[in-house]
């Protein structure tokens, strides 16, 4: 019985607060032309270092965690720390080595170039 009272009376010297990070799906625009697939994703508040872009086995995964720099107590709070994550299927015709990404003003711009073999070709007609 003594142990039970222990649970309620013991002083918590280092009380841990469990921080729940909400997950969110970034909104995207996807465009394509003959050369590449172009993807825009809105990820406000995310730093360059905290974004991970993975292309593996026909899946493209974008993820990142946003941590807000906060001083003071919240009078109102409509958004908080968040984990962005979204997975797309990408065609095998993407040249994984040439994928490049830019981050500007909280918008991720991802260029997914197509492989040479996947680009449309014009066939010359040879006249006899």
């Amino acid at each position: 019985m003594t142990e039970k009272t222990d649970l309620t009376t013991r002083k918590e010297s280092m009380l841990e607060k469990r921080q729940e990070i909400r997950r969110a799906i970034p909104l995207v625009d996807i465009y394509e032309n003959d050369e590449e697939i172009l993807l825009y994703a809105d990820m406000p508040g995310i730093a360059k270092d905290s974004i991970t872009i993975n292309v593996d086995n026909g899946k493209l995964e974008i993820s990142g965690i946003r941590k807000l720099q906060i001083t003071g107590t919240a009078s109102w709070q409509e958004f908080g720390d968040i984990e962005y994550r979204r997975v797309f299927s990408v065609p095998q015709s993407i040249d994984v080595n040439k994928v490049n990404a830019e981050l500007k003003e909280g918008v991720l711009k991802l260029h997914l170039p197509k492989t040479e073999a996947a680009k449309p070709r014009t066939i010359q007609i040879s006249a006899l």
Binding site: I70, T71, G72, S75, W76, E78, F79
Partner: peptide
């Protein structure tokens, strides 16, 4: 857009 307001005295 969504906003937060913090008060630090």
């Amino acid at each position: 857009p969504r906003t937060n307001l913090y008060d630090s005295g």
